[in-house]
Design a protein around this nucleic acid. Structure first.
Lengths: 359, 359
DNA sequence: GCTTAGCACTCTTTCCCTCTGAGTGCCAAT
DNA sequence: ATTGGCACTCAGAGGGAAAGAGTGCTAAGC
């Protein structure tokens, strides 16, 4: 696909204008731009050619042009200019980043809410495991008569817990013994290394609390096998703020019937290329219900073999540049927060400019 | 408010029909019902009177009648008949109740999703603390150089954890000592009993890991003070399936801008009466944005000083009887699952009829 | 006295028609 | 290659008119 400079300029202008107005762009509007020095007739000719090439579309004969999916893709890959966040935007992003929660899962969910709010679009977050996990520590805590809480720490710093209720009663000492056995024999093993033999061995060594072993091992295995953390999807309703969905509630509903949490965790599989920022433009999505929907996603690092993804869902007509800039800002600062901080609730990178003190 | 039997019958019929059709109900439609034996003219007279009494409304002169909020309230309080779940419904509820997750928080969120799916309306769940919580057990686990995971078990069987990163390095032994000190001095204390003196005492006793103490105490305090668990709100988009929101995306959006998670946890404060099932009908809600929105909520027991609430959000024109029946079924079985079960993933009440084996 | 049939009236909804205006595509001129 | 000009197209807005549903009232009936 080879475009002249002028064609590129026109395509870029059309995308930019259409993204902000949601109305087809006519040749006159382009010709009127300050840095365009040819007449609307010329623009019309160029537009006709761009349409020929499949980069533009015409909703109907007497309307202006809108970018086709291929047009967006070209724009993203080659024309998009870095969007500079304004001071105001940076400021509100900074304020938003003052995460309150301290538990990992809640933090991820909070991040999703923030991103959604800041972009005014639906957003999601997921944590994904980069490398194989192993158990790092087991703990068994007496919670009541016949109730035990199993706490499991994984190598990726996640902590999982499960309440186990038993018909037989066990003593604190029993639990302590079993915990020791578990810590000695089940830590640092990958899911593949679990087997029946191991189960038997531990049950034998586990003493009075041996009945617990199968439950513990099942749970551990389940945790180890979990590739993706929970998907936190929020702000679905914000999609309705977009003109293309304003009067098409049905379509909006369909989008999220299709794009459920399962689908979201499988999105990475259909990505066209690799890199920290990813764009899925309209029909590049697998499902036909998403043909008018785009997803921008960005990865960020969370320490210890984990990786976070923030995604924003919107109409294909989306301000890719702005969204990317905002996501980038989040990703950068979150990465910093998760990795180098003593107290994750206060990103050092932001500590200075951040004087908004609620509560 | 005194109604004749016939008036009650008519009001009930209007609510029932309107709930299922979402169209104003005319006198003819009522007269055509099998168990109504008077003419449409009589119905018209009665309807005029019910309108006079404020139980019915007329969207415009030449339309049928719809129930007013007062009409719904009367219906709920006096006319509503128990809805018997059909075999099919029971079956799909049973299948749905096969909860997969085993962690408390995830379970609650999953329950919300199920309820939303089963009612085809937005739903939420919250866990609320019934009595004051105390810490029951502390655990400090080494997660890496300078990284420590604090695991805190509360008297209500919740397990909270926090990743703490420290600039100074501590040894396993240091942590063990500190954990012992924490368990000896901070357990069984209510939030009120925390104070600076205590902090100092523990810090002194905490040895090398003493720097951790303020962080630990802050976190503990935060956990103890948390009255409500997370609100899990899902299925918002399903509101769009309702005719009253189908072409009023803006209204739907407003609903969930108003009814956010904060608002939801405060709902119990505005309830008109007490009991396990609660109805908030349209304008009984505090916010004017919710004047056409109703909430049905039901409480259920979760062991150990905790109480769960499931809520369903819908238009004022809502099948209160059916929703109540479904929520009741959930509440009953969840209560059973949470309390009497060995393995919360399998409610014994359902174990028999439940042969749908996925995975 | 309650009930009912009949009828005029009201008001929304739907359909169709026209008109307007934006924008195109092409042609001839520069 | 670019531009001004012009005929053409088509979606969307506006405006009745007609249809249809349902009411309220009145007068007759049981």
């Amino acid at each position: 696909m080879e475009l002249t400079d002028r064609q590129k300029q026109i395509l870029r202008a059309i995308v930019d204008i259409y993204v902000s107005t949601a109305e087809p762009v006519g040749s006159k509007a382009i010709a009127a731009l300050p840095d365009v020095s040819c007449s609307s007739a010329t623009i019309r000719n160029e537009m006709a050619e761009l349409t020929q090439m499949g980069l533009l579309e015409q909703p109907h004969t007497s309307a202006g042009r809108i970018p086709s999916p291929a047009g967006y893709r070209f724009y993203i890959d080659e024309l998009m200019q870095d969007y500079r966040l304004s001071m105001d935007e940076t400021k509100s992003l900074n304020e938003a980043l003052e995460l309150k929660s301290q538990e990992f899962d809640k933090m991820m969910s909070q991040v999703g809410k923030l991103v959604s709010k800041m972009t005014d679009l639906p957003a999601y977050t997921v944590a994904t495991r980069r490398s194989e996990a192993v158990a790092k520590h087991f703990d068994l805590i007496m919670a009541g008569p016949g109730s035990i809480i199993l706490v499991l720490m994984l190598s990726d710093d996640q902590v999982k817990n499960k309440l186990i209720k038993l018909p037989v009663s066990v003593t604190e000492a029993d639990l302590k013994l079993l915990a020791a056995v578990l810590n000695a024999s089940l830590t640092d093993l990958t899911a593949e290394q679990f087997n029946g033999e191991l189960l038997e061995k531990i049950t034998r060594a586990g003493g009075a609390a041996g009945t617990l072993v199968p439950l513990v091992m099942d749970f551990t295995l389940e945790c180890l096998r979990q590739q993706h953390g929970d998907v936190h999807l929020t702000g679905q309703m914000r999609l309705l703020g977009q003109p293309e969905y304003r009067d098409a509630a049905e379509k909006a509903q369909e989008v999220f019937e299709t794009l459920d949490e399962d689908m979201i965790s499988n999105l990475p599989a259909v990505l066209p290329k690799d890199g920290p920022v990813q764009f899925l433009v309209g029909p590049e999505n697998v499902a036909k219900e998403l043909k008018d929907t785009s997803v921008v996603m960005m990865r960020f690092d969370i320490g210890e073999g984990m990786q976070g993804t923030i995604g924003v869902v919107g109409p294909t007509r989306m301000d890719y540049a702005k969204i990317t800039a905002k996501l980038g800002y989040f990703a950068e600062n979150l990465g910093r927060m998760f990795q180098k901080t003593e107290n994750p609730a206060m990103p050092p990178a932001l500590a200075e400019g951040n004087n908004s003190t609620k509560e």
